[in-house]
Design a protein around this nucleic acid. Structure first.
Lengths: 342, 342
DNA sequence: CTGAAAGCGCTAACAT
DNA sequence: ATGTTAGCGCTTTCAG
């Protein structure tokens, strides 16, 4: 086991001190170019690697950002993460990712783990099970900046980056109405989660503005995964007065719905129109391709990370807003395009 | 900024010393139950959190495993990661994840970053661009255990966890032949990557054993993403003697192929049969659903992590194998089921 | 059963 | 421009 080479070794070999080596390595202005070169050459030669652990302990910061998401294999989240990484890396920060699998207990575990590793900041999109704020208390107590994105905790004063879900839903449902659909169903998630509640609001608002009566039987709250979508579709289509369109708060549930419709010989978009949410990659590859809302996930990640770097790092900016809202963009595809336009 | 509570604070308040507090917290046998209780109660009361950075510096290990994958938003990789996390967390280890986006430069960056943070082990599936071993040298030099999985570096003596890709491919192609397909095309990736080379071997072997002539025009090497699949399909179908089936080394490329076929009015599986690779979740949701090979991704992750814990941690096991091979499982779905059986 | 003391590798005031 | 010194928070001999 070759012991790892430290700053001390380099100093000894160059007949100088650790401080000089440290400074040389980090391009400190008051070190002569000659010394810098000698130090660096030797560092490379000896295959020296900074020990960030030691550096972090000393400097009191870990130079890493902790990110907590429900699951990493969603395009939405993996793009957000990519955005965070882009900004963080540019600032010399690392990113560590945890997934909660949409479980509250796992979320608490993730927080504990990140706190122990002394991340400088936590960016989080909460799990489906998260209602309370207790497990975030510790983060606040330890003075670790906390930024919520997408699925946020609203009972707190902490910063939030969200989509304008209500507006997105409103635009989506209006689009369906324009295409001539009359009875529009809606798949939604738990009402205590901002995004689902807001999307439902947008849905209701669009119906009202178009004088379409609201039918509670057409609003289904479920897990929003593939199977829930499949089952939900069957459920609403068995009504005496079934819908002719669906606005789903999730692309996965919309996919389930599409497959139920296909299995039962409905023609999309003629018999039935659909709009999903999130612009997951598969939505453009399936047939019919799925109309959906793009949430600018990459940008959302960048914003979230920048909140930390701007708000908590530099005092020179007067960053007073607590909540940043990004407008989603409707991507119209085959599943809802009943009328052809020029 | 409330300064964070340390072991020293607790010691002061209890009129004891840091060593005692440290031991009490870690359930050291030679601390009285009374003391343990007092320490722990106070720790909770004061909201004490170990500073892993300090602990790691002292103990010389970070208790974290570094994982490097091409991209996290593939079901295959995210499942492998889940497997790794499961094993690691059980051992009190954390996991940090890096993605290379299939770029060599990013891969090198990830390695550097993980080395700096002094991860205790690196588990990696290499990028599409990775041919050499140079950037792994440093890992070996620093005595950090290195485990390859799935896409592995074969020119080294390091441990590898792989699928039996050749066998998987062999089984897949045999299945197509059994279903009556006569001319089977193949989409593959760079030949210097084990998985693609081995799958191609399996494909060739199956053809040979069934006395089917090999036609090089039917073997396409591309990026294996959706677009490459779409374009590749067009390319082979324009041949004077086009294929009637495809074995694709990637589910995404197979999806592209399916869509080209649909766009051109081919009927699947009657006119054309397809088999993909990896059992990505979407393969069961599209129509026709895609026959593919499941790689036991979760298990692969567990194996990879356990290699570290068994081989590098405990000396009591004689773990001599350098390469562990897992048999993939053919999942037969609509895209290749031409003959109906009982 | 508990305390004293040293040190992990690095950084940064404070010298010189 | 470089050296001296102290210490980040924890663990771990070694002594009682």
């Amino acid at each position: 086991m070759a012991k790892r080479v430290t700053i001390q070794h380099l100093a000894d070999e160059l007949n100088t001190t650790p401080s000089t080596v440290s400074r040389a390595l980090r391009d400190h202005p008051s070190i002569s170019v000659g010394m810098k070169k000698r130090v660096r050459d030797l560092a490379i030669l000896r295959n020296y690697q900074v020990n960030s652990i030691a550096a972090n302990l000393r400097s009191g910061q870990s130079k890493t950002i902790g990110v907590i998401v429900p699951r990493i294999n969603r395009d939405f989240f993996s793009n957000v993460i990519a955005g965070i990484e882009e900004v963080a890396n540019k600032q010399g920060y690392g990113v560590v990712i945890c997934q909660t699998h949409d479980e509250l207990q796992q979320e608490a575990n993730c927080i504990e783990a990140l706190l122990r590793t002394r991340v400088d900041c936590i960016l989080i999109s909460i799990s489906l099970e998260t209602k309370g704020f207790e497990h975030f208390k510790k983060v606040i107590d330890m003075n670790v900046p906390l930024v919520f994105f997408d699925r946020v905790q609203e009972s707190s004063k902490t910063i939030r980056i969200v989509n304008n879900d209500e507006k997105g839903a409103f635009v989506a449902v209006n689009h369906l109405i324009e295409q001539g659909y009359k009875r529009i169903a809606h798949f939604t998630g738990p009402g205590y989660i901002n995004i689902y509640r807001n999307r439902k609001e947008g849905y209701l608002k669009a119906l009202k503005e178009n004088d379409i009566p609201i039918d509670k039987n057409l609003i289904i709250e479920n897990k929003l995964d593939y199977q829930a979508g499949y089952d939900g579709m069957r459920q609403v289509m068995k009504l005496s007065n079934p819908p002719d369109a669906l606005f789903s708060s999730s692309d996965y549930a919309a996919l389930g719905a599409i497959n139920w419709l296909k299995d039962n010989n409905y023609k999309i978009p003629n018999d039935f129109g659909l709009v999903g949410y999130s612009n997951e990659k598969f939505t453009s590859h399936i047939s019919p391709s799925l109309t959906t809302l793009d949430q600018h996930s990459l940008e959302m990640g960048k914003y979230a990370a920048n909140v930390f770097f701007d708000r908590f790092k530099s005092e020179d900016r007067d960053f007073i807003l607590n909540s940043l809202s990004i407008n989603p963009k409707l991507i119209i595809r085959e599943s809802s395009k009943r009328k052809r336009k020029v």
